[in-house]
């Protein structure tokens, strides 16, 4: 019985194999063509990175960029230099600056130019001589006040 089964299966196999040899050239060429096409398509799909690989990379890059982006705005704190702190915390009266306002203006200009050279943010010196005539008491006190305001702004940033 088993031998008969084997004989039968063998006959079936041979007949089916025969049918493969009888495939026409057009079909065989078509099979060959679609095989290479399938391999090309699969290769093309493989070379594309899947979304689940790209998305985390992009998110990480964005995070790094945002983290390193220089912050701009009014809340930026500019550390005052030691000299300005000394002026403010000194026990001398602010009238002291009334006497030598030109000197402090010159100091301010020098500091501003130094800060510009070093790329730090700083205040621009105020042109104190344009609004009031130099030499008058009112003009000098106004200039003094402007200078003090300017130094305060500079310190506060």
């Amino acid at each position: 019985m088993i031998k008969a089964d084997e004989k039968f299966e063998d006959k079936v196999r041979k007949t089916l194999d025969q049918s493969l040899n009888d495939l026409d050239n057009g079909t065989l060429a078509e099979i060959r063509r679609l095989k290479y096409r399938a391999m090309d398509v699969a290769e093309h799909k493989k070379s594309r990175k899947p979304v689940w690989v790209i998305a985390p990379v992009l998110a990480s890059l964005l995070f790094i960029v945002l983290l390193n982006m220089p912050q701009r705005g009014d809340n930026q704190f500019v550390t005052p230099g030691l000299t300005e702190l000394n002026i403010l915390t000194s026990a001398e009266s602010l009238d002291f600056y009334d006497e030598d306002i030109e000197f402090y203006e010159w100091c301010s200009e020098v500091m501003a130019s130094e800060a510009n050279m070093s790329g730090q943010r700083t205040a621009v010196p105020v042109d104190t001589g344009t609004k009031h005539a130099a030499g008058t008491r009112e003009g000098r006190s106004s200039v003094t006040k402007l200078g003090i305001d300017r130094v305060s702004r500079f310190i506060q940033g």
Partner: peptide, 20 residues
């Protein structure tokens, strides 16, 4: 014939991407 060819091609594509 055409359906059979399509089936074989689709199977080859899926096979490469899933089980190669």
């Amino acid at each position: 014939r055409e359906d059979a060819l399509d089936l074989v091609q689709d199977s080859m594509c899926s096979f490469i991407s899933k089980y190669s």
